[in-house]
Write a protein that binds this DNA or RNA. Structure first.
Lengths: 145, 145
DNA sequence: GGGAATACGGAAAAAATTATCCGTATCCGA
DNA sequence: TCGGATACGGATAATTTTTTCCGTATTCCC
């Protein structure tokens, strides 16, 4: 089993949130569970391109962080369901904001990725060569570190 | 230069947003640039544990997606500054929400990660063994796929 | 000359994440 | 018996991200 070597620094809330939902399928999982897709096999069917192993791993991570809870039913064949916890639900407004922002940008994004695939040369478009500026340099955080 | 083999699917806004700000240092970079830390060397000094190469790469990715723009001043030694674009600024409320949520959870998070390091055996705490439920199964998205 | 400042890209290595493949278990039906 | 259903973990391989190391350039100062 893999053991990480480099310690991570969670000095800002963003880093914490990214650690919690940063895996490839986690946002899909949160969405599906919140929409009543609760059983592992159903989750897998809803995301056919995902590796079952990674779905399991990421479900376990969400569980570890208290975002979801796992309910095991004592029967055969095995029956398990996942539910969002109240804590997990506290994240939903944030997830919705992220989803909304991404949805607005999606069309542009796809065109960008398409043009990137075609040319692999899209640098420089937003480069601006400036004359010597007269703008007064303001205080920077770097100096405070 | 690395070329990805497995195509990614951006069928939801979350996936798009995660692609844009998903790198290890990107959220830090957005925060710093929004707080007037604009020059590459200053960004590096503000995040001493980051690899300079990756900072450059992730700045380029943010630029590619139009989140920031790079301004090159014609002078020696080289002078470059990065600015948030209006589009990048449209992301700030989302970033703030993410930051706020992560900040609230931070203390619990740290304790969790600490206990994980100690025992590597934290599974099962949220497991609930249930009697046969009488809850009526509702429609699932999986069936619609 | 060497070291400091500035900025940054290619190549290769290391670390981390994801995917594949093997295995565990029970029950039911062809 | 085999294949389907259910759920899931260890080991290993493949892919991806991050890091290290090499290099490019100019100017200034000791």
């Amino acid at each position: 089993m893999y053991e990480k070597k480099i310690p991570k620094n969670f000095s800002c809330g963003m880093a914490v949130l990214m650690e919690i939902i940063g895996g490839k399928w986690k946002s899909y999982l949160i969405y599906l569970i919140n929409n009543d897709v609760r059983r592992p096999a159903d989750l897998q069917r809803a995301i056919p391109s995902a590796s079952r192993r990674v779905l399991d791993l990421q479900l376990r991570e969400l569980e570890f962080h208290g975002i979801i809870k796992r309910v095991i039913y004592p029967e055969m064949p095995p029956k398990v369901e996942y539910f969002l916890t109240p804590f997990g639900e506290s994240m939903l407004p944030v997830v919705a904001a992220m989803e909304a922002w991404g949805g607005e940008y999606m069309e542009t994004f796809r065109q960008l990725m398409e043009s990137k695939k075609k040319s692999m040369l899209t640098d420089g478009e937003s480069v601006e060569i400036k004359d010597k500026p007269v703008i007064q340099r303001r205080r920077t955080l770097a100096k405070a570190v």
